[in-house]
Design a protein around this nucleic acid. Structure first.
Length: 343
DNA sequence: AAAAAGCACAACCGCCCGATA
DNA sequence: GTATCGGGCGGTTGTGCTTTT
């Protein structure tokens, strides 16, 4: 059967490893003459010491016309891959047909290297390397401010108008969307030409601090909860720096969360954010476990939209009670900020 | 400056599947 | 029905470059 693939070609010496330009030339000549077929005949005619399969791969991945060799994936291509992967799964060839000049191997390598990177970050105690930290300085600063609020340390600038509980004794979870206008947070690399202009939100502001509420997040084990890349990026960018250690449970009732339409005129969401919202998969939505409703809202003085969910609380909440179940060392990875008295 | 780590990429392998002779 | 082939896929390895330590 074809299962033994190129094994039948192991009878005599077979050359492996990197292709020489002479070999490429021979292969190209063969394709010019006979078209991209009859790969095994290349070897049977003693033109090359390569297996038919190897010839086909070389042609498909490197020699085919109009390939984008040595060119990093653009923002658009990344989006397409993420979107199509969510749609089709690991059908790399199918996905590659939607990306002109890209091969299934390109897509697969792109995907797997991103997965590895994400896995490394997720498994690491220190979420970012120094360079990554540098790239995310603004995020870290914002996260540190959040952590301050998480600990119940009210800022001196905090007028007290923001509370963990609203009038109905409901806890508010607010999940800030990453500032995708900062392309570095998507790690798109230096080769991104013509990034889309996206309205920028302020990374941090006094007003923002006033309205940052307690955040409770969980970081699922990637093995037990497959997340889309977009979701993982979201978690990595926004959740890890805050320090957390919860578990995620499936919402028992259907459909757990409803996002308000971002078309609403009072919500000037960026294009990327809108796309993001559409792509958020159910596993990410589970982060909002326990929320009865969820909506996208905009904070005063903040252009970035927030997810906002209402949580029914069974017992009276105090700021500290939100942390009772957290391990004591969960904030270790967060840089300490000067206490308000030092300001 | 050198070693280590991170990363992207090319190429291969084994297995599977469908088409075809 | 069977063998062969082309194609697809997941996994892996090797290599070279870049960045970090």
């Amino acid at each position: 059967m074809g299962r033994n693939g190129g094994d039948e070609e192991m009878k005599s010496t077979v050359r492996k490893g990197p292709w020489k330009s002479e070999e490429d030339e021979v292969l190209l000549n063969h394709v010019k003459k006979y078209g991209p077929r009859d790969w095994s005949s290349i070897r049977s005619k003693s033109l090359l010491q390569r297996t038919g399969k190897s010839c086909r791969l070389r042609w498909v991945n490197k020699l085919r016309p109009n390939l984008k060799n040595g060119c990093k994936f653009s923002v658009e291509e990344e989006r397409t891959v993420i979107e199509l992967q969510a749609q089709f799964g690991n059908k790399w060839a199918k996905i590659a047909t939607h990306l002109s000049g890209r091969t299934d191997n390109d897509v697969k390598n792109f995907w797997s290297s991103r997965q590895k990177r994400l896995a490394r970050i997720l498994q690491s105690n220190t979420p970012y390397s120094k360079s990554q930290k540098k790239r995310k300085e603004n995020h870290s600063f914002e996260a540190a401010n959040k952590s301050c609020l998480m600990k119940g340390e009210s800022s001196s600038k905090d007028s007290g108008t923001s509370s963990l509980l609203d009038n109905n004794n409901e806890m508010t979870k607010m999940v800030p969307l990453p500032n995708y206008a900062d392309h570095s947070c998507l790690d798109l690399g230096p080769n991104v030409a013509n990034p889309e202009p996206i309205p920028l939100g302020k990374n941090s502001s006094n007003e923002l601090q006033q309205h940052k509420h307690l955040q409770l997040f969980s970081l699922p084990q990637s093995s037990e909860l497959p997340l889309s890349l977009v979701t993982e990026e979201l978690i990595i960018d926004e959740l890890i720096p805050m320090g957390k250690n919860l578990s995620i449970k499936q919402q028992p009732h259907e459909p757990p969360l409803l996002f308000s339409s971002p078309q609403s005129s009072e919500l000037p969401l960026s294009m990327v954010t809108e796309e993001l919202i559409h792509r958020l998969d159910s596993s990410f939505m589970n982060i909002f476990d326990g929320m009865d409703t969820c909506e996208i809202m905009q904070l005063p003085g903040e252009e970035l939209p927030y997810f906002r969910g209402k949580v029914q609380t069974e017992k009276p909440m105090t700021p500290d009670s939100n942390f009772d179940d957290f391990p004591t060392d969960m904030f270790d990875q967060i840089e300490h900020l000067p206490s308000p008295s030092d300001w």
